[in-house]
Design a protein around this nucleic acid. Structure first.
Length: 588
RNA sequence: GCCUUUGUAGUUAAAUGGAUAUAACUGCGGACUUCUAAGCCGUUAUUCUAGGUUCGAUUCCUAGCAGAGGCACCA
């Protein structure tokens, strides 16, 4: 619809002999201003003024002082006057537009006919699960990497954040028709592993039966602290690091293998909880060798400096970074460089590659991408890094080293307990672990994705445990409410139908059809919060509707249409929640 | 010091350069012989500072201020 109006306005401009301008077609902030608004009159006015010789910019304080400059063009004094001319050309030209009005400084507002909204309701019902999809990435293979926890370290709420962001980005690409491959890159080698193994030895963990993933987190903290505070421990850990790397000690190998297995299995339980299914796993251990080779094979790109192979980012306004340290070990940058190749090889090529991490990596990634441009330009061009904010505690930054982290699993369990209590308290439905979990995940995902992903967030447990107001459970509740009332309507013998519809469209109708645009915008801007905001608005509009209208009332002749509308809202909520990886239970 | 990023009611957030800056939480006050009250209705309060660009700035530019991250061998 937006495109239709855009074309019509552009044609009107041409008919009037005015040059094309970069006007926008948008939804007015206030719904009483119509369904779409266009600022073409203001924009074209500026184009006209700039060409004129008398225009002096800031000296003109009111729009009325504008005068036409070009004799061949129609004369008008202000945007409103131009708007009138454009409006005349548009009148009766656009299907489904009932009324065009000029308002404010010169906005042209479009009001849709009743039929438009009925047709949209019908379209939503017919599309069902496919409602909200677009084909902007149809037939494109998109690799999305996210979460990236390190085995041997605790999977904490920061990982939950990065997972929620990555998962929603992946699903936005799915909605655009892409063949999405979720991948996870995990640090199974490096000093942090040596910290953990040293800690395991100290804490007497020798075989898988001795410890859980949680204990590994403790072992890591023990080792990391000792490394920092105790010289002899530091030496031992350094030696151990080499031993692990070379796999030269049977007992250490056994410890390493057991710890890695336990850690990875533990991560799987979390992925299952949050609704992520990775198609491929990559490990630093496999990227390391490839990375080293890549660096050594490209000495002109990665020259030696101070015994290390570096990339001179400063030549390009970036930082100079070490890719291979003086011990010949590949750094994060070299491994990430290798990772692009590994992904490409294993997945049989791809059209686009997204890597989502906390923004502490953002600066490195710029350097990396620049270097990648020299090593394999075709992959670099397809690679995109999405940095996001970090989760902080009220006390400051989380630290796995000191053990000052909130484990994801504990946090989910706390929120699920709170959900369980609430279900029991209201008694609306039977409490099950699955339902409690779905609500908990809904609450957490919503809280994570409600705002711009660029901002840091401070972990607020009180808030997370509350399900009131803007929240995941609010959306889930609204969905369940619709399912429930539709059941009642069915029992009352009401068959949802497009006719008859009340003369005035409801606010929910004016909100519903925008879902498609929101999904597209959320993907284009890599901004899942747009989906969250939209769903909250829709749910709010529905709850107001619900408070004023009866749906399961057989004596109401509009009940069949209202039921159909409610169904369209439920479909939209469900599809939107899918993008956020939040379940939409039918009972709450 | 340099680079990146964020700054909006008491709090958490929203607003492709648009019309009266929008919600939620908190506070206060309501409605209902009720299709799920995790809901609905009402009410108070906000754009870090100073310039600039623009018909029009929370948004863009410049300079500050404040927070966060980064600035060579951790990731």
């Amino acid at each position: 619809m937006e495109a239709v109006i855009r074309t019509a306005v552009a044609e009107a401009l041409a008919t009037l002999g005015l040059p094309p301008s970069d006007f926008v077609i948008e939804h007015p902030g206030d719904i009483s201003h119509g369904d779409y608004a266009c600022n073409v009159a203001m924009v074209s006015m500026r184009a006209q003024a700039v060409e004129g010789t008398e225009y002096t910019g800031k000296k003109i304080s009111t729009l009325d002082t504008f005068t036409p400059r070009t004799p061949t063009r129609p004369g008008f004094k202000n945007p409103r006057e131009l708007a009138v001319l454009i409006k005349e050309k548009l009148e009766g030209q656009i299907e489904y537009v009932e009324k065009i009005e000029i308002a404010g400084p010169g906005f042209i507002n479009f009001y849709f006919t009743r039929d438009f909204f009925v047709a949209e309701t019908n379209r939503i019902i017919n599309l069902g699960e496919n409602w909200g999809r677009n084909d902007s990435w149809a037939d494109k293979k998109v690799v999305v990497e996210y979460t990236d926890p390190n085995p041997f370290k605790e999977f904490h709420i920061g990982h939950l954040f990065t997972n929620a962001v990555g998962e929603s980005i992946a699903r936005l690409f799915m909605m655009a028709g892409a063949d999405v491959r979720r991948v996870c890159y995990q640090g199974d080698v490096g000093l942090h592993v040596a910290h953990a193994i040293w800690g395991m030895q100290k804490l007497g963990m020798t075989s898988e039966s001795d410890f859980t993933a949680k204990d590994l987190g403790r072992a890591y903290a023990t080792g990391a602290t000792a490394y920092k505070e105790n010289e002899s421990a530091k030496t031992e850990i350094t030696v151990l690091n080499k031993v692990i790397y070379e796999r030269s000690d049977e007992r250490v190998n056994a410890l390493y293998d057991a710890g890695r297995r336990v850690s990875l299995a533990y991560f799987e339980t979390i992925y299952k909880l949050v609704g992520t299914e990775f198609s491929e796993y990559f490990f630093e251990s496999e990227a390391a060798g490839v990375g080293k080779e890549l660096v050594l094979n490209n000495p002109e790109i990665f020259p030696l400096s101070d015994g290390a192979h570096i990339f001179e980012g400063e030549k390009y306004g970036l930082h100079t970074r070490v890719f291979l340290n003086k011990l010949g070990l590949p750094t994060y940058e070299a491994k990430e460089l290798a990772l692009a190749k590994l992904k490409n090889d294993r997945l049989g090529g791809y059209d686009h590659s997204v890597i989502s991490t906390a923004n502490e990596i953002s600066e490195y990634f710029k350097v990396l991408k620049k270097a990648m441009g020299f090593v394999y330009p075709e992959l670099a061009a397809k690679t995109e890094h999405i940095g996001h904010g970090m989760v902080k505690l009220a006390t400051g930054k989380m630290s796995s080293r000191t053990g000052d982290v909130i484990s994801a699993i504990d946090f989910i369990a706390d929120v699920a307990q709170s959900a369980h209590d609430k279900i029991t308290e209201t008694g609306m439905t039977i409490a099950s672990p699955e339902l409690s979990n779905d609500i908990a995940i809904g609450a957490i995902k919503y809280a994570t994705l409600r705002g711009s992903i660029l901002q840091d967030s401070v972990f607020d447990k009180e808030r997370a445990l509350s399900f009131e107001g803007d929240s995941g459970p609010y959306l889930q509740y609204t969905h369940a409410r619709i399912c429930s009332v539709l059941d009642k309507a069915r029992a009352a013998g009401i068959v949802p139908s497009l006719t008859p519809a009340p003369t005035e469209p409801y606010l929910i109708e004016k909100t519903l059809y925008r879902f498609e645009e929101v999904v597209q915008a959320a993907l284009d801007d890599r901004a899942p919060h747009k989906v969250v905001g939209y769903l909250t608005e829709l749910a709010g509009a529905f709850n107001t509707f619900y408070a004023h209208e009866k749906m399961a009332d057989a004596t109401d002749k509009f009940a069949p249409y209202k039921c159909l509308l409610a169904q369209a809202v439920a479909t939209t909520l469900k599809n939107g929640l899918f993008i956020l990886a939040i379940k939409a239970p039918e009972r709450l």
